[in-house]
Design a protein around this nucleic acid. Structure first.
Length: 240
DNA sequence: GCGACAG
DNA sequence: ATCTTGTCGC
């Protein structure tokens, strides 16, 4: 006996996708691309995790756990950490990631009190079908400089790049460069960098390279990933 | 029409 | 992203 594909394949409210597309178009229109004067000392990072992902809309038990932090490049450590937990409203639909984890991530970022020059997101920015990935969506919404740094590709094509840290390849889509594929570590898959808001690609790449240590992912994002895992454990343990 | 598809 | 232990490698 066959079954409908478990996990996704869920029926979304009629017209929701169209409304989402319209919202992405509006946000995309407000995006600003400009170089950053200098690589800021304080770079924020954010990430999200899920509790009972499958229970999405119906189950009611699904939760989105988000964490945002401010990383000090000089002391190489986080100087502030904030988090947020919100109910999981929608399933994951490719190209609409922002609507699933965006609200929680935005709430966590808004809780930060320590100043920062730019936020690094775990996902695409301009390298999106409608040029409105997570980094553009939240960067514009919060009107804060933002960079998209994904661990895998959403759209675009690129020529194979060199195997040395710092080697790059242009990420192309529909005849334009939407981002840069960057090798951050030897014998490791590259990351996908793209503009979010109030930055340009060269600035974004400089910021990321200034935030790299011994890992593939820039420190702000890596530390946020570690923090969000801790918060998730506390949520699972029922700690308030 | 047939894949691909951030986290 | 999440389901999941140990294990091969630097």
């Amino acid at each position: 006996m066959w079954r409908k594909p478990a996990g996704d394949g869920q029926t979304l409210p009629p017209g929701l996708v169209e409304r989402w597309k319209a919202e992405q178009a509006e946000l995309r229109a407000k995006m600003v691309v400009a170089p950053l004067p200098d690589v800021p000392r304080y770079v924020a990072g954010a990430d999200a995790a899920f509790v009972n992902p499958g229970d999405g809309p119906e189950g009611g038990a699904g939760r989105v756990v988000a964490c945002a932090l401010v990383y000090d490049r000089v002391e190489r450590r986080a100087v502030e950490v904030a988090h947020a937990v919100r109910p999981l409203e929608v399933p994951y639909v490719p190209t609409f990631l922002s609507f699933r984890e965006g609200p929680a991530v935005a709430e966590a970022i808004r809780k930060l009190t320590h100043p920062f020059g730019v936020v690094c997101f775990d996902g695409q920015g301009y390298a999106h079908p409608r040029r409105c990935g997570l980094a553009v969506h939240l960067g514009v919404t919060l009107d804060v400089p933002a960079i998209g740094c994904g661990k895998s590709r959403l759209i675009g094509t690129y020529d194979e790049l060199g195997d040395q840290p710092g080697d790059t390849s242009a990420l192309m889509h529909a005849g334009e460069q939407v981002g840069l594929v960057l090798r951050t570590k030897v014998r490791t898959n590259p990351v996908f960098v793209s503009v979010g808001h109030r930055v340009d690609l060269p600035s974004a790449v400089r910021v990321l390279q200034a935030c790299l240590t011994k890992y593939r992912i820039p420190e702000p994002t890596r530390l946020a990933d570690i923090e969000v895992a801790k918060v998730k454990k506390r949520v699972l343990a029922g700690v308030a």
